[in-house]
Design a protein around this nucleic acid. Structure first.
Length: 402
RNA sequence: GGGCAGGUACUCAAGCGGCCAACGAGGGCAGACUGUAAAUCUGCUGACUUAUGUCUACGGAGGUUCGAAUCCUUCCCUGCCCA
């Protein structure tokens, strides 16, 4: 194992909080002395199975721990996910069945494997210990925390002040997560800065249970492609790890220029002196923002799809958006008729959700067939030969009639 | 248990008997423009055989009325105050 100061330097890279640092040092020293890896915990919510590059910031940190010889403990929150949110206010927490959580958990882990070293990863489902707790155990757990402490959490404070409902069980979530730390004997728990409260609650509960409290490490939450909100699936401003190279590239190109340094640092994990260099270049005009974004987009695609995919995605992007040509790979769809009106064609190919929508698209000039714009919603089109249907700037479909 | 205020489209939020498929904002979609799927500007944004037409929709169920998101009854849900 590497000496303390070297490890600490790697661990502190890009982090927001590392608390309490002296405990981290103590744990590291002990780990080196006994040649025992630290247990680094990350909790995952399987109600949303898609990982995006925002999550990747945290996973990358875990990977660094692994490269230093430590062990990552991934906890799939299947227990919590099956409870859901009975207030029904938040659709972000639909109650899932056990099967769904298992399925999501598996896909989650497969995606995480793009970044993590799975030989140094332990995957656990929290239902395996939470299901065993009795009501007595739960009450004992709740007695270790106070209402005032819970209300300190930012979103609880806000909702309470705004007279918005807070279900009792929501108070339990931080405690459940904290109990997970007890169950897996976490040395350090990692999460986004939005998790700081929950991570700290873990310390309290561990102490109360007679365990050695974990340390906490938080990573920045990166903004989504809109540049304002945090990246999240529900806001649809995310770049998914399983997105196609084309989508990854395009989504990255669509970020506002102001986000370039952050994406370079946290999505590409570029060294800090390179980030500084790019910032300077952008400021004095020697680096064109578009060039900087192309570079970032290529690197992101290359990271998850391989080097050549990055270059291909770039070429494709140039062709479709800069030269306004059609992409080289287009989905194909055969239809049971040789000719029909545009409206029907759009609906049948699911390029429009309803006939009204199809009509709107046509009227607005968003529909073309073989690069010929169709503006008459009653136009009858012949598809006995294969033709390229285009809706908006981005959606292409090769149609072939019977 | 009592009192009060609320529940409107994807979200927030107006409307408080006909002019309401419902102001406005955000979001989404399309168009123009552009280094880009950015920014900006413009338009659209319940569905249906596109019709000064029909149907569905303003928490649920009933009712009053020629006519209800708007009034009444009742039920469900949320917040606040009192107990």
């Amino acid at each position: 194992m590497k000496p303390l100061h070297e490890q600490l330097a790697v661990i502190k890279e890009n982090v927001v909080d590392l608390l309490p640092e002296e405990d981290v040092i103590m744990k590291l020293e002990r780990s080196i002395k006994n040649n025992t890896p630290l247990r680094i915990k990350l909790g995952l919510d399987p109600s949303r199975p898609d990982i995006h590059i925002g999550h990747a910031v945290v996973l990358q940190k875990l990977r660094q721990f692994q490269d230093l010889g430590h062990l990552v403990v991934l906890i799939i929150g299947d227990f919590t996910a099956t409870i859901g949110d009975p207030t029904g206010k938040s659709k972000t927490r639909p109650a899932l069945t056990i099967e769904e959580t298992r399925h999501n958990g598996t896909t989650y882990v497969m995606q995480a494997a793009k970044i993590l070293d799975m030989y140094r990863t332990e995957v656990l489902y929290n239902s395996s210990w939470l299901d065993l707790l009795s009501f007595r155990d739960v009450i004992r757990l709740t007695s270790q925390y106070t209402v005032a402490q819970l209300l300190e959490r930012d979103d609880f404070t806000k909702r309470y002040r705004a007279n918005e409902p807070i279900s009792l069980h929501e108070f339990l979530y931080p405690l459940i997560q904290a109990y997970d730390s007890v169950a897996v004997k976490a040395d350090i728990e990692v999460g986004g800065t939005d998790q700081k409260f929950n991570l700290l609650a873990g310390r309290e509960i561990m102490r109360g249970s007679g365990a050695e409290p974990q340390c906490i490490l938080t990573m920045p939450i990166i903004e989504g492609t809109d540049g304002v909100e945090k990246m999240s699936k529900s806001l649809d401003n995310y770049i998914g790890l399983t997105d196609s190279p084309k989508d990854m590239f395009g989504k990255t190109m669509s970020i506002p220029d102001s986000l370039i340094p952050r994406y370079l640092q946290y999505a590409c994990f570029a060294p800090s002196d390179e980030v500084t260099l790019v910032k300077q270049g952008l400021q004095d005009g020697s680096l064109h923002p578009r060039a900087a974004k192309v570079d970032i987009a290529k690197r992101i695609v290359a990271r998850y799809h391989g080097q050549s995919a990055g270059d291909e995605a770039f070429a494709e992007f140039e062709r479709v958006f800069v030269k306004k040509d059609i992409p080289d790979v287009i989905e194909e769809r055969s239809l049971p008729y040789a000719q029909t009106d545009v409206i029907t064609l759009l609906v049948d190919t699911q390029m429009a959700a309803s006939k009204s929508e199809a009509r709107r698209l046509v009227t607005q000039g968003g529909v073309s067939l073989d690069a010929v714009k169709i503006t008459d919603p009653y136009a009858v089109v012949d598809i006995s030969e294969q033709r390229i249907l285009r809706v908006g700037k981005l959606r292409f479909l090769r149609v072939i009639g019977a």
